[in-house]
Design a binder for these strands. Structure first.
Lengths: 187, 187
DNA sequence: ATCGATGGAGAACGCTCGTTCTCGACCTGA
DNA sequence: TCAGGTCGAGAACGAGCGTTCTCCATCGAT
């Protein structure tokens, strides 16, 4: 058997590819970035890319799935470092504020992907819904721990802040949503 | 001067073109619909289309602008038929509920356009921001009339309901947002 | 009746896309 | 050393895009 490709190398290449693709897709949009651009960014030959992901759609779904894992892990780590249930819910919006203020923030990758491909790619649509459902479920668990049944409005405030921050390219919706959540929780 | 084209005909053609383009763009996405598809839907020759709008981008902006006028006029007509200030604000969410339940509802055309073209078309981005600003300003005026300073959270709840209804293809976020607004306004 | 400008129908252009193919270099096992 | 399979680099392909051009029928003015 000539020319070996180790399993470890495959893992590394996948990671490089997904990382490059995620940065490009997020910054410029999915349809605006061609596979050649992805190739030059990750340094992998096109042939290898298509061996790892048979179609661009598969790559897009994998990018969204990987980003979802990191996004929710980061949120959870921040939020669950706070002991008090009420403060925990508020910590979600502090985390959102920090996210919105990141350089290169361009809104929610899943909402953007939904706008681009939601009507033409069933797998992408499913991935977007899966991410939103997971976020809502997690948020619902945290809100439920306060004993106050306001999970749905808190979720809608979070989504409203995310979409508004994305369009206006400003972080302040996070604070406004946070203040509203304080009211809903506080009585 | 041979072969006349009256001003009235131009107006009618513009309307037919914008109507056909809006339906197609909203249903399938902007990038997924080619100019040929628009042509066959409106029945106008390509040459005429490009005389009315020199580029596809111009057409897209005009479609969004026309939709914005109708969207806000419809909302305003519904809301301002309600006399009581507090009921007026709640009427916004009744109108949203009816919108979400319309057949063919596929989310907010401006949020979708932002996801598709927000990072590649400055005019489209400006149009999206203009629409959202106009909606927020109008909503702020209605909320201010109640004397309770909750305009921003009410706006975020509306946006959250719109984006969530669009992704999940369900109308219930409108009622949940409405209930939260009742809380913010009421007690 | 004839001329010339105009508009309609759609072919054509140049480009880019996602995807596949070609081909030479390389490495491994015998 | 040699043979054969595999890989990398990039050309190539077919389709579709936005946009422009060609060509002919049509009409008003003379």
């Amino acid at each position: 058997m000539p020319a070996p490709i180790t399993e470890e190398q495959t893992r590394l290449d996948r990671e490089a590819l997904l990382g490059a693709a995620e940065a490009l897709f997020y910054a410029h949009g999915i349809q605006a970035v061609g596979m050649d651009r992805v190739r030059e960014a990750c340094g992998l030959p096109l042939k290898r890319i298509y061996r790892l992901f048979p179609t661009k759609e598969d790559l897009v779904v994998a990018v969204l799935r990987r980003r979802d894992r990191r996004w929710r892990a980061s949120l959870t780590a921040h939020v669950e470092s706070v002991p008090d249930p009420r403060e925990r819910v508020l910590a979600v919006f502090d985390w959102l504020a920090a996210w919105f203020a990141e350089p290169g923030f361009r809104g929610c990758a899943w909402i953007n992907a939904h706008g681009e491909l939601g009507s033409s790619s069933e797998p992408v649509l499913a991935e977007v819904r899966s991410h939103k459902r997971a976020f809502r479920d997690q948020l619902t668990a945290w809100v439920s721990a306060t004993g106050i049944p306001v999970a749905e409005p808190v979720y809608l405030l979070a989504e409203g802040a995310i979409v508004t921050a994305g369009i206006d390219a400003r972080p302040d919706p996070a604070q406004q949503a946070r203040a509203a959540v304080e009211t809903l929780l506080g009585g």
